[in-house]
Design a protein around this nucleic acid. Structure first.
Lengths: 312, 312
DNA sequence: CGTTATTGTGTAATATGTTTGCATGATCGA
DNA sequence: TCGATCATGCAAACATATTACACAATAACG
């Protein structure tokens, strides 16, 4: 619907280099370079200038991008309106999100979509927040579930529509024999002096724990890194430290650990955002998926449990 | 910048038939048909249905068109902003307009453009109002001067930006020996009983004269058809009737005819409109051309001449 | 009521544009 | 200085769009 060269320019702006943009678009750097040159010729302006071994966008390119964002938004609106007017929409629809979302939230939504739109090909992609935005931009995904990280585009970014979907409360996981284990609730500060188990640096999970602790007034003593919930749980079970697990993440029962809901003001939680391309939120499938996801989330973490050891 | 298939759909909607749209776009009907089929497949909706030997647009097609208009407007804005930021804009710029405008108004504007933007290739196309809109839509022209006719799109049409540029007063042309010839001014009604010389039916000039007479309260007795001012003037000189000539149109001195300014409330005049694609009005070249045209018009028909025989 | 001119669609051949693979030049970090 | 990373240019492979032509359906005409 819109010249693909604009999308190329957008990707180059997003990634900063031709090569990275090419990778995100499943192109070769040559193609990207050529398309940019061609777009510049069509528009009669310089779009980029060499800066060292990389490139830099000109003011004209920024202008183009600003307008491109509006164009894409309009296209999304058009698509949404069209899809709403068709009885049996075909094509494909892709949901993406980070691990827990992909495990617990996305499959029910995808199933509901499949049932409601028999002609539709529904796909799910598990991806970290950073990649989710790539997928949205490239059109490889239509709805993304993510948590805010340092590299999340600002909510005012005119390419995306990001809105809070739900707050997923954080639970503290301690060994069964830990002094806190018989507490109904705890605060983060209660575990300030414990060794902590967090995700690999750079991961959304790592960012989550560190910022939560910082907000509670201390810097966690990071003793171990574990990306998967089960790995971290095993470490906790062997008394290597404590960890934080969002309520949505279910743990296997077998581990001798206790799950303690955290309190505080506000209660520690990770905010889950639903992101679409700007203008795409009115799309009936997006609306349907968001509805299912909300319902699923409500059934998964609803009645504020008084006790925390309801692990799986 | 925008998928050409949308332009195809727009043209089909504008002309009502695939064949006519193809002609306006310099395509073959096959290509148009094929592109529409493809666009429909991409969007997943039916765009047109057979109606007799012609076609009819579906509601979905209307929806697409509504959004397409907004898209094109946004693109025009982007182009205008880009052109304003470039020192030496290249490319080409095309003015079009009906005969008198093309003769007296467009060339000075084109010359000014050429002087101001040396790298620019400036073109002028003489075209009737109906075709002007085709030229604008197809991108074959960037600014059009036209008079309102029955087939002019409404000013609310979301594809164009039409604004009044100036009112060109109408003069009555009579033979030198005509009873009215020594009058300083006249009303249209004064010539209600005369035989009239007008343009070929369907032409903008024909429409102009008839509506002016209707507004004055009578239906002209059409005796002769002449499309060129000189042809009509020759007929008047030979006492075949009277005619109406807009002030901007200059006549050769040699003819034994008298030019009488018309009065009335409002004074009979033809309204000249300046039309661009919606969003294109801010383009610096459009602004420059409109400035020159206004100045030219002011110098051509300014000080309300007390006497009308200033022919040539 | 057949005839003729229009209109839209489908198909194979052609023209056009895009993408790749590889080679080159340039810059940065070690 | 070397190796790694990055952007770009060019010819060839590839994909896409456009045409020319043939065909079916409809409306106007005599």
């Amino acid at each position: 619907m819109i010249d693909s060269k604009l999308r190329v320019l957008q990707m180059v702006a997003h990634h900063g280099t031709v090569t990275a943009a090419a990778a995100a678009l499943h192109y070769t750097p040559s193609a990207v370079s050529h398309q940019l040159r061609q777009l510049a010729a069509e528009l009669g302006v310089e779009l980029l200038s060499q800066s060292g071994r990389g490139i830099r966008l000109t003011a004209a390119a920024r202008t183009v991008l600003r307008h491109a964002d509006v164009l894409y938004e309009q296209v999304e609106r058009a698509k949404a309106e069209l899809a709403a007017a068709v009885d049996e929409p075909g094509g494909s629809f892709t949901l993406c999100g980070f691990s827990t979302a992909a495990t617990h939230l996305l499959p029910p939504a995808a199933a509901a979509l499949r049932d409601r739109y028999p002609q539709l090909s529904v796909r799910v992609i598990e991806a970290e927040p950073g990649r989710c935005f790539d997928l949205l931009l490239a059109g490889d995904a239509d709805l993304a579930l993510l948590t805010a990280t340092a590299q999340t585009p600002p909510s005012s970014d005119s390419r995306f529509d990001q809105r809070p979907l739900l707050d997923d409360p954080l639970d503290l996981i301690v060994p069964d024999q830990h002094p806190l284990a018989d507490r109904a609730t705890a605060t983060l500060a209660d575990a300030a002096d414990e060794p902590w188990i967090v995700g690999r640096p750079g991961s959304a999970y790592h960012h989550l724990v560190v910022t939560a602790c910082m907000a509670a007034g201390f810097t966690p003593n990071i003793a171990h890194h574990a990306d998967e919930w089960d790995t971290g749980t095993a470490l906790v079970a062997h008394e290597f430290g404590v960890m934080l697990v969002p309520r949505l993440a279910r743990l296997h029962e077998e581990w001798p650990v206790t799950r303690i809901p955290l309190r505080g003001e506000p209660a520690p939680a990770r905010r889950i955002l639903a992101a679409t391309r700007l203008g795409g939120r009115e799309h009936p499938m997006v609306a349907s998926a968001l509805g299912t996801i909300s319902a699923t989330a409500a059934s998964l973490l609803p009645p504020p449990q008084p006790v925390g050891d309801e692990a799986e």
